[in-house]
């Protein structure tokens, strides 16, 4: 089971401090929702945890080895990362987009190992995309594109899945489906899933843990039931909110 640890991570972008002494730790089986207002540093934290951006100071370890010590391809085999609004610039068939997730395991030249086709089929099935196989990715609806990208991330069987705003722009049904899918990936397959989420109700219902960020600092870290309080919401977003219910029927409402 994989273990991802960040210790005292600080990072400035264009002389503006974006992350300030953030320390977090997470392991396989957890589904972590990163919450916080716009500009809180959520996306930056995710890119640092994914090893795409090196922190100015502090360390990030995956399985006790610094991220910087991984060869990019080795790291790519263990963690998958999806940015905000991922898209494909060429009209590739869905199947080929998903296949791109296998890039780190492929030789520079030559064809596709037959075993990989099975993995692609499995990823397409896991994301309900069998009927979309040959459709150009540029013609997909938002929900289908999001599923395609998730399949692209899953096809390489990563232990760690880092997703930036997976449900942004999805309708309620697709958003629910996406959160369920991510929760299943953590619970049933023991992957570590870290996602930035703005829908607090869904975060509360499906995530096993919350990281609350504001102005580059970690304000709270814990299970949703005890962490997500009206007080935290006021502190995070400057809004009055009430949190009611628990577990699968919990919801967050703004006053």
């Amino acid at each position: 089971m994989s273990l991802l640890q960040a210790q005292d991570v600080c990072l400035s972008l264009s002389a503006r401090p974006v992350l300030q002494a953030v320390s977090v730790s997470a392991q396989g089986g957890e589904f972590i929702a990163v919450i916080g207002p716009n500009g809180a540093g959520k996306s930056t934290l995710l890119t640092v945890l994914a090893g795409l951006l090196a922190p100015d100071s502090g360390t990030v370890h995956l399985d006790a080895k610094p991220l910087a010590a991984y060869a990019p391809r080795d790291l790519a085999r263990q963690r998958a990362y999806l940015p905000q609004n991922p898209r494909c610039d060429w009209p590739l068939p869905v199947e080929r987009v998903v296949a791109l997730g296998l890039t780190p395991g492929l030789p520079a030249f030559g064809g596709f190992p037959p075993a990989d086709q099975l993995r692609i089929d499995a990823a397409l099935q896991a994301c309900d995309l069998q009927s979309r196989r040959q459709q150009p990715a540029t013609t997909l609806s938002g929900g289908e594109l999001a599923r395609t990208m998730l399949a692209r991330a899953l096809v390489g069987d990563p232990a760690v899945l880092i997703v930036d705003e997976p449900i942004a722009g999805l309708d309620p049904r697709h958003a629910l489906e996406a959160m369920r899918r991510l929760a299943r990936l953590a619970r049933d397959e023991q992957r570590l899933v870290i996602a930035a989420v703005h829908d607090l109700t869904l975060a509360m219902r499906y995530a096993t843990r919350l990281w609350a960020l504001r102005d580059g600092r970690l304000l709270a870290d814990g299970p949703p039931a005890t962490t997500l309080t009206a007080e935290l919401l006021r502190e995070l977003f400057d809004v009055a909110a009430c949190v009611s219910g628990e577990g699968g029927s919990a919801y967050v409402d703004y006053v």
Binding site: A80, P83, D89, L100, T103, P104, F109
Partner: peptide
Amino acid sequence: GTGRALDALSLGEQQATSLGIN
């Protein structure tokens, strides 16, 4: 010899980097 990297790049620079492309 750039084919594989260009394929990954069709997902954008961030995704290509995350797939191990330099």
